[in-house]
Design a protein around this nucleic acid. Structure first.
Lengths: 219, 219
DNA sequence: TCTTTACTAGGTATTACTACCTAACTATTT
DNA sequence: AAATAGTTAGGTAGTAATACCTAGTAAAGA
């Protein structure tokens, strides 16, 4: 076992978040650590892409919900074009679909916004070394349902139906919109509920909101 | 016009937020300003009450959704017991009901979490002088519907019913829970929909989420 | 080729919700 | 004392959603 004790270079970090408050707070928190340097900030996915190519940071702290391009899509492009740059998702969304999408996109870790700055620091250190880091609740989620979610995922058609349902349209309305029989719509509703193990319409609406099919205002 | 140019005492601030990240970021941002000093932090409403009495800060930056006691209730008690302490609500919720509740509870201002640290600074300065400060979108909301919301507000009973409805319970279930006839529950549902001008159950669920009656996970 | 999956659609019956209506009791306000 | 608002509850009828069932077609994969 050889220890590498030479004075380490600072870990360069790019912050990507559209909320100035979060950005400011985060860079202030990270300024406390000598071995980390925030070398840039970006306000959306497109911006992140440009800054990442220009600055080639070691780690990108990436928010998910942003204007122009979301963090997952940006992560996918960045991890493909810049394999040496690690992406650490930093968000308040803790739904399993987001987590799975992030992993699929090549993220090295997933940290929730309500964790301590110490954990963010350790997560940055971990992914820099090529390891992964997931917040405890996320790790637990991955343990509990590593493949179940994948298998039970909704088809594209079902997602369309569900988004209409969650927007308040009746089966008849949806049938007209999609030009199919309302019996078909009802069949899809049954399948969706069975797949998600959900019984009430209210739970469907919350599922749709929590998984990004609609936003809180109703798409 | 007399200018008061003596070296001002620092404005003492108490931060109340259950997210360590927000707390850390905020105190780091405010540390930049010489005339502001964060003299304490609290993690929930109860904690805020104790710290406020002990530290008697000039300004309290108060989050709304917290464990044990929410920010609105804490604000009501604090503004009553400590009239010299100004409360500035600091939250991501921008629903008109929250804003009205906050004003009712005696808050001097309402700042959204996605604003810049400069605005938070100016808001703190403003409320210290006895003025008020509302984020631009909040101010616009207050202009547009100063009284409409008050008139259309749901009664406590209706809010209880709505929260159950949004959690996915049927009228029968709710009737059993509250030990009333399910016809009464249905009557309440009719009144709620009429008041809110809402037709679908899905819209009711989203309203409940957006107005804090339930959270996205379903209370 | 056979199987599976997704999407489609219908039959029948039950349950849940909604739209109208009326109306009693209580507490508060004018 | 009268009016108002909130909570309670029922009648009747219609619409929407759900729970069972079967079943065809098209596309992808073994």
């Amino acid at each position: 076992m050889i220890h590498d004790n030479k004075p380490q270079e600072k870990i360069s970090v790019l912050l990507v978040d559209d909320h100035p408050m979060v950005q400011g707070g985060l860079s202030a928190c990270l300024a406390y650590y000598d071995d980390i340097e925030v070398i840039g900030v970006a306000h959306d996915g497109k911006d992140a892409l440009n800054k990442a190519k220009e600055l080639k940071p070691n780690v990108i702290l990436m928010d998910v919900s942003m204007p122009l391009m979301n963090g997952i899509d940006a992560t996918e492009i960045i991890t493909e074009q810049l394999p040496d740059t690690k992406v650490l998702i930093f968000t308040m969304h803790n739904s399993s679909e987001f987590v799975h999408s992030a992993i699929q996109a090549g993220a090295s870790g997933y940290v929730l916004k309500d964790t301590s700055s110490e954990e963010v620091y350790f997560a940055i250190k971990a992914v820099t070394k090529g390891n992964t880091h997931f917040s405890s609740s996320i790790a637990k989620m991955l343990q509990e349902s590593p493949l179940k979610i994948e298998n039970d995922k909704l088809t594209t058609r079902e997602q369309v139906i569900l988004s209409f349902v969650a927007q308040g349209f009746s089966s008849k309305d949806i049938a007209k919109k999609l030009d199919i029989s309302f019996r078909t719509v009802e069949a899809h509703r049954r399948n969706i509920k069975a797949k998600l193990n959900i019984e009430s319409l209210a739970d469907l609406v919350r599922f749709a909101i929590n998984h990004g099919l609609i936003n809180k205002e109703g798409e």
